[in-house]
Amino acid sequence: MPATPRPQPALAPQRRHQLLALLQRLGLDPTAAGGPGDGPEALALIDEALTHTSAGLAHHHDRLEFLGDAVLRLAAAEYLQRQHPNLSVGQCSALRAQLVSDRWLADLAERCGLADVVRIGAMAEGDLAGRRTVLAETCEALIGGLYDSWGGSLVPVHLWLDSHWRQTTAELLADPDQHNWKSALQEWSQGQGLGLPVYRCLERNRRHADPRRFHCRVSLPATHEAKPVAQPLGEGWGGSRREAEQQAARAALEHIRQQPS
């Protein structure tokens, strides 16, 4: 059931036109059947979703982000059930994790130009590392705002996201590891009786937006003359430890698969 409407601040004509242009880019028509309309009051939740807490305004994205998190997961599950009914539950779960990840949401927000319409505080705007986090959060809030504005319907969410999910899902299904190289390496190493991969990450600098901030090497514990010996397999860089570990695991898998069988 949609949330009880709350008093909203007046929406300036320029802001209204900005929000309508965004909805048009997303392939949504608020005046279509089931939509909220295109008046200032009808667009209030969209405006709230695109107002980050850092802006210091009374109405901000937090509440709708909480709602959008649940809506996003439900819509992604519904999409996978409809478009890929033959996949196992485990496969669907792994795919959904990618389709609702913060990285995917931030990429989506950048593709759709959300940065141009998000209200954000000056300090947050200057934080390059936090920029993608803000985009992911407001993207999720926008999903909640669309769901709420359309009367608790997933229709606008699917109209916006399905084509993006279709592209991402095709890429993931074409990748045998579905971009989760750490899990794939762990499955391989355990299957070979080699134990769990060991990751060693070092922070090379403190620059938040640097994609080479962290460097990681991955090795496998093995036994040689009854003594543990580390076998280095791959290395990678990333803006976060997790990303560096994934890239190291990816390099390790490529190395393994190039070896003669």
Score class of each variant (00 low, 15 high):
residue 214 F to N: 05
residue 132 R to G: 02
residue 59 H to Y: 15
residue 27 G to H: 02
residue 183 S to I: 09
residue 99 L to T: 03
residue 73 R to G: 07
residue 170 A to M: 13
residue 238 G to P: 03
residue 51 T to I: 01
residue 124 A to I: 05
residue 176 P to H: 08
residue 117 V to K: 00
residue 55 A to D: 06
residue 59 H to L: 12
residue 12 A to F: 13
residue 98 Q to P: 06
residue 164 H to P: 08
residue 238 G to Y: 02
residue 173 L to V: 05
residue 49 A to K: 01
residue 179 H to V: 13
residue 225 E to M: 13
residue 23 L to F: 00
residue 215 H to V: 14
residue 19 L to N: 01
residue 101 S to K: 03
residue 223 T to L: 12
residue 245 E to A: 03
residue 226 A to K: 13
residue 155 V to E: 12
residue 114 L to N: 00
residue 155 V to N: 11
residue 90 G to S: 09
residue 58 A to R: 14
residue 151 G to E: 10
residue 73 R to K: 12
residue 35 G to V: 02
residue 253 L to C: 01
residue 125 E to D: 10
residue 112 C to A: 07
residue 42 A to M: 06
residue 29 D to I: 03
residue 227 K to D: 14
residue 59 H to W: 14
residue 59 H to P: 12
residue 254 E to G: 12
residue 180 N to Q: 11
residue 85 P to F: 03
residue 68 G to N: 00
residue 66 F to L: 13
residue 162 D to Y: 04
residue 134 V to A: 00
residue 257 R to P: 10
residue 52 H to F: 05
residue 4 T to H: 15
residue 249 A to F: 03
residue 176 P to M: 07
residue 54 S to E: 04
residue 187 E to F: 15
residue 130 G to N: 06
residue 198 V to W: 07
residue 68 G to S: 02
residue 84 H to W: 13
residue 21 A to Y: 06
residue 12 A to N: 11
residue 258 Q to Y: 15
residue 23 L to H: 00
residue 160 W to K: 03
residue 137 E to T: 13
residue 178 Q to F: 14
residue 250 R to D: 08
residue 209 A to T: 10
residue 207 R to Q: 11
residue 92 C to A: 13
residue 15 R to T: 12
residue 92 C to P: 13
residue 255 H to E: 15
residue 204 R to F: 12
residue 185 L to P: 01
residue 239 G to Q: 09
residue 125 E to Q: 15
residue 83 Q to G: 15
residue 161 L to E: 05
residue 21 A to C: 07
residue 161 L to I: 07
residue 224 H to L: 11
residue 144 G to S: 03
residue 8 Q to E: 14
residue 170 A to L: 15
residue 199 Y to R: 04
residue 209 A to R: 13
residue 218 V to Q: 01
residue 11 L to W: 09
residue 78 E to K: 08
residue 257 R to Y: 15
residue 235 E to Q: 13
residue 200 R to T: 10
